[in-house]
């Protein structure tokens, strides 16, 4: 039996609601609050409860729907596009890299490298374009932020 996206989605949300609900019970209460009707736990518990109900409903409905209709045509042209997904994954990794290096290398260096790597990942090869699309943008941005607006941008711990 092919499990449709709808069921998967609802199932994930179900699991999430359960774990959210579990953690909701862990929320500390301040002394005296145990007797209150409405506490810091109330809304989270409510959300978790509703989440569980709705996701179960959704699972049931999807299963019913799926057994009624046969749609194989969800996305037939969707043979797993490895190249695109690789690009997406690399860009996500690149963002993590950016977050890690921004304060170490300093804004200018880190951003230029982020942009250049990003362009490279997406297939840009022309050295001229790589340079032109990254360096001027960063310099101008840096200039506006630090000189015009007085916002401090990390010069980098390497130069510290």
């Amino acid at each position: 039996m092919k499990i449709s996206k709808n069921v998967i989605g609802a199932l994930i949300f179900f699991i999430f609601s359960v774990s959210y609900g579990y953690h909701a019970y862990q929320i500390p209460l301040y002394p005296g609050e145990e007797y209150d009707v409405f506490t810091s736990q109330t809304m989270p518990k409510l959300y978790a409860f509703l989440g569980i109900i709705v996701s179960i409903l959704a699972i049931i409905m999807s299963v019913l729907n799926d057994s009624r209709t046969t749609n194989d045509t969800e996305k037939s042209a969707d043979d797993f596009d490895k190249k695109s997904w690789l690009q997406v994954a690399s860009l996500i990794a690149l963002m993590v890299y950016y977050g890690a290096t921004l304060e170490q290398f300093g804004f200018i260096l880190s951003t230029i490298s982020f942009l250049i790597f990003g362009f490279l990942i997406l297939g840009e090869r022309s050295k001229k374009r790589l340079f032109l699309a990254s360096v001027p943008v960063v310099i101008v941005f840096w200039a506006i932020m630090t000189q015009l607006l007085g916002i401090y941008l990390s010069p980098g711990d390497l130069w510290g």
């Binding site: 999430f16 810091s40 989440g51 709705v54 959704a58 409905m61």
Partner: peptide
């Protein structure tokens, strides 16, 4: 149902942090 689930997800995300009232 899907939009209800997403709304709930958003509501849940909004609870992360320090609860102002308590």
């Amino acid at each position: 149902l899907k939009s209800i689930m997403m709304t709930l997800f958003g509501l849940m995300l909004s609870t992360i942090g320090t609860d102002q009232a308590s």
